[in-house]
Design a protein around this nucleic acid. Sequence first.
DNA 1: AATCGGCCCCAAAGCGGTTTGGATAGGGAA
DNA 2: TTCCCTATCCAAACCGCTTTGGGGCCGATT
Lengths: 361, 361
Amino acid sequence: MVALQSALEIKGAMNLRELAQLLNLSQTTVSRALNDYPEVSEATRKKVKEAAQRYDYRPNARAQQLATGRSMAIGHVIPSSSQHEMVNVVFSDFVAGASEVYAQHGYDMVVSMVADQDEMQTYRDIAQRQKVDGIIVHGPIQNDPRIPLLSELGIPFLVHGRSTGVDASYSWLDVNNRRAVERATSYLLDLGHRRIGLVNGFEHMDFAARRRAGYLSALAAKGVPADPDLMTSGEMTEPNGYEAACAMLDLDEPVTAFVSSSIVPTLGIRRALEDQGLRIGSDVSVVCYDDAISALPNGGPGAPTYTATRSSVRDAGRRCAEILIERIGNPTLPHVQELWEADLVLGGSTGVAATPEPADR
Amino acid sequence: MVALQSALEIKGAMNLRELAQLLNLSQTTVSRALNDYPEVSEATRKKVKEAAQRYDYRPNARAQQLATGRSMAIGHVIPSSSQHEMVNVVFSDFVAGASEVYAQHGYDMVVSMVADQDEMQTYRDIAQRQKVDGIIVHGPIQNDPRIPLLSELGIPFLVHGRSTGVDASYSWLDVNNRRAVERATSYLLDLGHRRIGLVNGFEHMDFAARRRAGYLSALAAKGVPADPDLMTSGEMTEPNGYEAACAMLDLDEPVTAFVSSSIVPTLGIRRALEDQGLRIGSDVSVVCYDDAISALPNGGPGAPTYTATRSSVRDAGRRCAEILIERIGNPTLPHVQELWEADLVLGGSTGVAATPEPADR
DNA sequence: AATCGGCCCCAAAGCGGTTTGGATAGGGAA
DNA sequence: TTCCCTATCCAAACCGCTTTGGGGCCGATT
């Protein structure tokens, strides 16, 4: 006893065998007592749990994982190409939501950021080496090869977003990006705007392509021709928003309104407008896609709230985690496909078009 | 052979025993061949590696972890209290840097976001259950209890930042926050500013306390009294920057310059200045602490580059990962303590004080 | 020819849990 | 009293890999 005590002090950790020995019980019984199996008497269970508490016994996770066949971890692979798109700001809020749910269910989150060319290999590795029990796929592109790969590998996964062009059925959670931007654009058209600039993310990304489609569809519905000069796509950064806005404001027929893909490039758009002495809302309207990021909220004290299509990426993270955990528990469940509608929140950044005359060149 | 083939197709994965059987070799030999042990002939090694390749064999990570006693993973625990401080923007860039290095060394990154009251338990759990081989401590506060805890648990760890008040020696990497802000403040004083506002993060965070100390020290050196009205601390968000700036601009003796803790609140400061029709650089000077965040770079096309103390948080992430991995390899190494100096980059956001008269009340 | 030392390879024992297939004892039914 | 059943516990197998401690085999040494 004393020997064990001091061994404990030295080792700092204790294993099941030692604990069982200490209690004069078998490992089986101790394990069952701790895991609330019924074939242990209440008296014994109590004794065991008390001892576990006193000696601060915690089962070795690695051994547990091997024995149970579960890793109790969920993988997030982030391609480094989409670092600017994903990693910053948006991704971290998503992760915050997801990990909340993971913690509740005892899951860990393993994040790999990986170079593009290694990406498929990384998925293979993660799945076949059984590092995780499930995977969340971020930033799907059109015809995303990761989806058939993961289906083939047979590991539960969930796509945050969707991938047009992928035939197979899979689980996903997406915001209706097309509809959101369609409504935003429509709204601007209703206000009389005819020169509406789209500051989009990279359009090989599925969400960006859908947003573009929504933009075009709204224009088409009102019979307004699309103008390539009014559509840009690129990294969703502040400087990119600025440059795009400058270019569109310098056109012969400048834009009178913007649809922006995120609050971050919108900061750049605002800066461009200020440079030209234009006022948001009255001179030029801006609608942005608002992911409800905590560090950069839309609105707040004294801030002009942007008219925005809003959908919380943190909530999405939470829900994605829930769905995936459920699928891990029962992989034969039919695929979950959730399409969220974004709110269109009216703010002070939009107003009727200043010069309604369509300026016949 | 044919039977094994089809079994492979069904299972999707193959284990060492099966591979060994297929090759008419023992598991020992196969394992040694794959892991480049010398006691295997080149011919055999070649055969084994080819077979492994052909059957796409990958060792089960869980079994490997149990057998080797290493998890090949590094833990990051982020207290949810500092979500706004850490998780967003800054944290994700740090992680991007770190995971680059992890990938090179075959380590995985496990991230836990956890409620404050559970934090210590989480560390205990992670360490004793051996989920990871090392831990990076984020957002140290003054007298941070995590440091003695982790020392006691005997798991290699590295603090990003430092913790004043902790006696024991430990490994850390920090930026000289005090010096950086001291220099920034000094610079503003040299330009003739006497009413300099400090928009700081929460000052129980160690880095924020040090920055305040640097601010105060610069004032003291020039004999300028500190004014509590000119010092705020809080979340490093846009709205907070705005509110702090507004309050300081509304004082009887308003500020003529700001020292800001991050690019994010600086966005709010800029907004406050615009509201009052004040121009950055000429009317009011701003120096900010720039973590070189990719989505919100300082400067860029057409952007006024802020005068800033700059230090890349992504580089810090990279270096932290390197140090920790080294410590994991050899835990008896003396503690590494790296203090980085931040650059003071001059930009367009600072200028001589507009009204040099100290306004004797 | 007998011994020795490398070189290759193998069987088996871990790693630290969970889970299977009994064994034992005590209580109730016949 | 005898028999059976249930409640409780245990020894051993197992998860899939690494690593220890040999054991042949072969050419070289004496």
